[in-house]
């Protein structure tokens, strides 16, 4: 039985905050193109300068996701990737030397079918610091929240520009960070963010006692830098998953040289997303 230690997400944000830096948080769909490559991609993301990473569980009905992550999920599910496989990737990545915190991103049903107690026990066992469940709003999360608090895994909530009065309730209870959805819509690359985005982020900031991060639609360093001053971290999903789709298609895996080159391309892409300078909020 381990004693309560500081959550690694909190530690990373404290260090970045002291340096005035913004966290870069990539998202990868586990099992796309396969699980071994997922482990290598996680290592590549850390080498590219990522501060923590979201490991996405492929799901048959990804309601909150746009076409890029839907396609990645379909590719991963073709070789029957399970939730426990995805959780297991974290231990393999640790064994490969990855040090940054892991956050699992999963829809609720796979966790529910596994059993919520067992789900959190596995998250603990494999060294996860946080979990994001996009289809589990505040009204439905009581049981999950209770287990999360007991196990020390942060349940990271989402807030949206439409959350309005809910922001206060969500942000005040948040652990780890508050995931601010930049725009109305599903995940995916986009040119514009919600018109009231800065005001929205300011509202979340006021209500939150933990860092705030922005995601949904961030696909370039310019966009990441746009949020560097107002948020503590930026989450980049679809843009990276699309790069994986291009650089590491399943047929590339048979060719070791091509795989190596593909990993290098994804690493360079992630490195280029990192905000070059940051301002304090």
């Amino acid at each position: 039985m381990s004693t309560v230690t500081a959550n690694a997400i909190d530690t990373v944000f404290a260090e970045l905050g002291a340096k005035g830096e913004t966290a870069l948080i990539p998202f990868l769909t586990m099992g796309d193109p396969d699980l071994d490559t997922s482990v290598k991609l996680i290592a590549a993301a850390e080498a590219a300068g990522a501060h923590m990473i979201e490991l996405g569980v492929p799901y048959s009905d990804p309601l909150a996701d746009g076409p890029v992550i839907q396609r990645a999920s379909e590719r991963a599910l073709r070789h029957r990737i399970s939730l426990t496989d995805c959780i297991g990737v974290a231990s393999k990545a640790r064994a490969a030397g990855v040090r940054m915190p892991f956050i699992l991103f999963t829809y609720f049903n796979p966790a529910l079918q596994l059993g919520l107690e067992r789900f959190f026990a596995l998250l603990q066992e494999h060294g996860f610091s946080g979990v994001i469940i996009p289809d589990l709003p505040l009204e439905e999360d009581a049981e999950v929240r209770g287990i999360a608090e007991r196990t020390g895994v942060h349940l990271i909530p989402l807030v949206a520009p439409t959350s309005e009065a809910r922001v206060e309730r969500i942000a005040s209870q948040a652990k780890g960070f508050v995931y601010c959805v930049s725009s109305l819509g599903v995940t995916g690359v986009r040119a514009d963010f919600h018109a009231g985005i800065d005001q929205f982020l300011a509202t979340v900031r006021r209500a939150s006692s933990v860092p705030i991060c922005v995601g949904f639609g961030i696909s370039s360093r310019e966009q990441a830098e746009r949020f560097a001053g107002v948020a503590d971290g930026v989450i980049v999903g679809s843009a990276i998953v699309r790069q994986v789709e291009t650089s590491l298609p399943p047929e590339a895996l048979a060719d070791a040289e091509r795989t190596k080159a593909g990993l290098a391309e994804v690493q360079a892409f992630i490195a280029d997303l990192k905000p070059r300078k940051s301002e304090t909020a």
């Binding site: 520009p161 439409t162 959350s163 809910r166």
Partner: peptide, 11 residues
């Protein structure tokens, strides 16, 4: 229940 993304809750 209501198991939907936060964006839809107020709607």
């Amino acid at each position: 229940g209501r198991y939907v993304p936060e964006t839809l809750m107020n709607a």
